[in-house]
Design a protein around this nucleic acid. Structure first.
Lengths: 299, 299
DNA sequence: TGTAATTACGGGATACGTAAAGATG
DNA sequence: CATCTTTACGTATCCCGTAATTACA
């Protein structure tokens, strides 16, 4: 086992107090943390933490070692940070998976900025609205609208997008317009699969508060553009990102429903495969995107 | 990979200059060192060493990181040493493989001293003159006379033992006594297998210098006592440790041959399975034995 | 052309997670 | 008795070594 990881676990155990907390923080199981601490003590030949199932007490040796461990970890941090400043030119290839429409509208310009700043970086853009397997496809970062169902991925929020509840005028003429979220039960809805709570739509009420509706429909897709297409064709009601539906709204191909209710914004996330160590250029890319998205609001 | 191991490899690469030298020192293959350095650079996102197949040059970032890496490694060393001093009571079980005769005469008393000093230590003595598989038998330390053929084991010299060239009086009466090392070619010799150069016996000449003889015989064994028994029974000439043959010499069951030539002493070694990390109690035990054997000469 | 580093690949050790056991207040 | 750690076990991963390839003097 990586000795610095053992130190990290030990330090956090001293600070947080329970194996469970450390495990959650470090994204491993309790049993793993237990083995890590045991291995560290075994290596040192010294008990660091006296523990029963209910109590933990840092030994005298543990107190001493805790200080040293903290120093070591921060020395590693500063050493790596220092050497990375020394050679700030990022290089190598980034494989970035982006949604088709959102990618074209919002990601590409920012990627261009990133490329301009870092001459030696290459970017491979993989357009997809599906939740591709990041590991198999060797993708460094996937940018997606909404939180993924697969929570094993590490995610970071880049921005939020407004959403509109829409349907085609023809559909509304035929089926009527819902007047309250609960009316959606009577409608055919177009569901986005692959997102957490894809079938529960919530709305902010004018007086404050929130109303949720579990919706169902004939069509479900893990692709927003497919839903947009189906909505245009009058197959049902869809809850879609503002920038996705704007043209259709302007053209009169779609009309907005429940316009007096607010829709909670959907997060735009950068997703990474659950690697233990994130490559600097990936981290820097994501930092850059977070920063770039924070500058301007999505319209 | 263990980050501190990567640092160690990098530091030694800077100091030694070639991947091969580092690999030999760290007991891994060149390809492994190559991957280690590549991984370290990959993690940092910085090239540390510009290398072609023929030349290596430490980059500017590498120079800087070298200093930090050295500090980190020595910080780890001192942190572990410090915490181990803090709690010097060793505990746990040591599985020690010892030769039958040498063990009884020289090891057991020293083990007793070690047990007396460390109350919480348990020792399991496994008597064997064979070269047992340390890993399979989960042996922590094996003490052996002579250097093992299997050089994958890490060994540490505890002491040296004098040796005598012996045969039974009956054998000498029948076959005559050798007058020079080269005469041994005409004799039936009793060979110890499992030792490096077990079939090449060398002797120090009175005027200085050394003479080697490649010997052969009908009987070979990886057990000194078997050779002693065969020598007593008159099956040939044996080169055996002083303490092993003393009783038989005193009793007249064996006579010494070539008494005017010196025999290079055989090393007494502590052997460990090639583990990456030696447990403190094992290390301390061996340190203790080295010290204990250094006190008194073997007779 | 010979030496040294890198890359490819296969086998084996190992470290993780799941689940059950154990312990303690 | 409930909660938290440890232990047992199966599996997937990763890491090392062997061998082929590449690169350079």
């Amino acid at each position: 086992m990586d000795r610095l990881t053992l130190l990290h676990a030990f330090v956090r155990l001293v600070e947080l107090g329970t194996f469970t907390a450390v495990a959650d923080e470090m994204r491993v199981k309790q049993s793993t943390v237990s083995k890590w601490i045991a291995e560290l003590e075994e290596r040192l030949g010294v008990q660091l933490i006296e523990r029963t199932t209910r109590t933990r007490r840092v030994t005298e040796a543990g107190e001493l070692f805790y200080e040293r461990a903290r120093e070591l970890l921060s020395a590693w941090e500063s050493a790596t940070a220092e050497v990375q400043e020394q050679a700030p030119e990022l290089r190598g290839r980034l494989r970035v998976s982006v949604p088709v429409v959102f990618g074209r509208l919002f990601v590409v310009p920012r990627v261009a900025d990133f490329l301009q700043r870092h001459e030696a970086i290459e970017v491979e853009l993989l357009y997809s609205d599906r939740y591709v397997n990041l590991i198999e496809e060797r993708i460094d970062v996937a940018i997606r609208v909404g939180l993924p169902e697969d929570s094993s991925l590490t995610s970071r929020k880049l921005a939020e997008t407004g959403r509109h509840l829409v349907a085609s005028p023809e559909y509304v003429a035929r089926r009527g317009a819902p007047e309250r979220p609960s009316d959606l039960k009577e409608h055919t809805c177009l569901l986005h699969t692959g997102l957490s709570n894809g079938d529960v739509w919530s709305f902010g009420l004018p007086g404050g508060g929130e109303e949720r509706a579990r919706v169902r429909g004939r069509i479900a897709a893990n692709n927003s553009e497919a839903l947009l297409y189906m909505a245009r064709r009058g197959f049902g009601v869809a809850l879609l990102a503002t920038w996705l539906v704007r043209d259709a709204l302007d053209a009169g191909e779609l009309v907005e429903l429940l316009p007096n209710l607010t829709r909670p914004p959907a997060p735009i996330c950068a997703l990474m495969p659950p690697r233990r160590f994130v490559h600097p250029r990936v981290r820097r890319f994501i930092d850059f995107m977070v920063d770039a998205f924070a500058q301007a609001r999505l319209r």
